[in-house]
Design a protein around this nucleic acid. Sequence first.
DNA 1: TCCAAAAGTTAGGTATGCCTAATTATTTAT
DNA 2: ATAAATAATTAGGCATACCTAACTTTTGGA
Lengths: 219, 219
Amino acid sequence: MVNISTEDYLKAIYQINTEKNEAATTTEVACKLDISKAATTEMVQKLSERGFINYEKYKGVELTDEGKKIALQILRRHRLWELFLIKVLGLTWSEVHDEAERLEHTTSDLLINKIDEYLGFPDFDPHGSPIPDKFGVLPEMPALTPLSECDTGISYRIMLVNDASNELMNYFTSIGIELKTELYLSGRLDFDRTLFIEINGIRHPVTEKMAKHLFVEKV
Amino acid sequence: MVNISTEDYLKAIYQINTEKNEAATTTEVACKLDISKAATTEMVQKLSERGFINYEKYKGVELTDEGKKIALQILRRHRLWELFLIKVLGLTWSEVHDEAERLEHTTSDLLINKIDEYLGFPDFDPHGSPIPDKFGVLPEMPALTPLSECDTGISYRIMLVNDASNELMNYFTSIGIELKTELYLSGRLDFDRTLFIEINGIRHPVTEKMAKHLFVEKV
DNA sequence: TCCAAAAGTTAGGTATGCCTAATTATTTAT
DNA sequence: ATAAATAATTAGGCATACCTAACTTTTGGA
C-alpha cells in the first residue's frame, strides 16, 4: 500500500472543487484517490484540523486559502515539469503525466522557479492547462466548451485536453489530436451520442466519454 | 517522522561498503541515516529476507548483487541529476545535493536515460564522482589521495570532493575550491594537522576533517 | 584472562494511514 | 410522508517503520 500525501489530497480536492464549482464529496475524493470512503473521512478530518480544508460532516469539503495555495503550488510544479519534459528532454505527451505526478512532490521552489525561467515563464502546459505563477496566480483563460456539448457541422480548435490516462493520450495522438489541432465536427449518433470528427480530411469516431476530455473553441 | 526508503538503506550501505571495503556495521548505518540502532537492525533483517543484503547477526551487512544493482541505479540518478541541475538549470554546487537527494527517488529509467543522453553520457558528476552507466557499470577512475594524507611542498589538482554538507560546499566555493582547481600544499601544523593551501596565491587554512573530503592527484 | 565498555539485538510501545463491517444520516421515489 | 437506496461516518483491526529500554554478545585493555 502506497501512502497518499497531503499534497495529493489537496490536489484532488482542488480539482473536484474546480470542476464542480462546489464542495467535493467524500465519495468523489475517495474515488479520485482510489481509496476507501472511510480512509477519506479520516484524512479529511485531519486536514481540516490542520487548517487546509473546511469540512462539515456530511457536507463535503472545500479548500481554505492555505489549502488552495498548496494545491496551486503542486499544479504549478506538475504543469511546468510536463512542459519541461516535452520541450527540453523530448518525452511524449503520454509519457509526461506519470513522470510529473512523481516529480511534483520532490521539487523545491528554487528548482521549479529555475525551470519556469528556463521555459520563459509559460502560461500553459502541453495539455493546455494554465500554469500558476510563483505567487499562485493563474493566467487568464478563454471560456472553453467540452467537445461533447458542441454543435455538429462546425469547426473547432482543441485548446485543452484533460489529462486522463496514458492510454487515452496515446489514442488521441494516434488519430492526430494534439493541442491546437483543428477539427470538423461532422455528426453525432442519437444512439449513444458518439461523435464523428474530421482531422485532415479523415473521419474518426469519438465516444462521448472521450469527448468530455476535449475542450475546444470555435475556429 | 519521515520514513526512510529501501533505496536509502541500500545507498547508505553501498557507500559504507565502498569507503571501508568491508561489511557495514549497524551503528554506521544507523548513524548515516540518523535513526536508532534498533530500527536499523529491524530493517536490515527485512532487507536481508528480501535478498538485497547479506546479513549475519553481529557481523554487519554487505550488499548482494541485486542490492548493489539498485544502489548503483540510485547513484546514477543522483549524479546525473546533480550534473543536469548545474549545467542546464544553473543551480550551484551547494544547492544540488539536497535536490538530487529527493529527485533520485522519483525518476524513471526512461527519464534518467533521456537526461544521460542530453548530457552526452558523462562519466563524472560535478563533485568528480563516477556516474554508473545504464547497465550499472562505473567508469574507470584514477587512484586518488585524500588531501589530508598528502605531502607538503607539492602542487595538486582536486579531482573529487566528497559530498558532505551544504555548508561545507559553500565554504569550499568561497575559498575558490572547485573541481579541477589546482592548489599548492604549503604546510601542515603538528599541533592538530591543520593544512595550509594556496589557491591563486592566496593562503587558506584547511582543517584535517575538511581535507579528508578533498581527493587529489599530483599536478 | 576476565571484566568493563561498546556494539548489537530483542521486547514492547506508538503514530500513521490504510482496510472492512456496522451504523447513522441524507436523499430520492412513490 | 415514509421507506428504500445511497452516502457518510464510526468502530475496530492491521502493517509499517519508527522509538526507548532492557538484555546479550563482542571487543579491548589491565
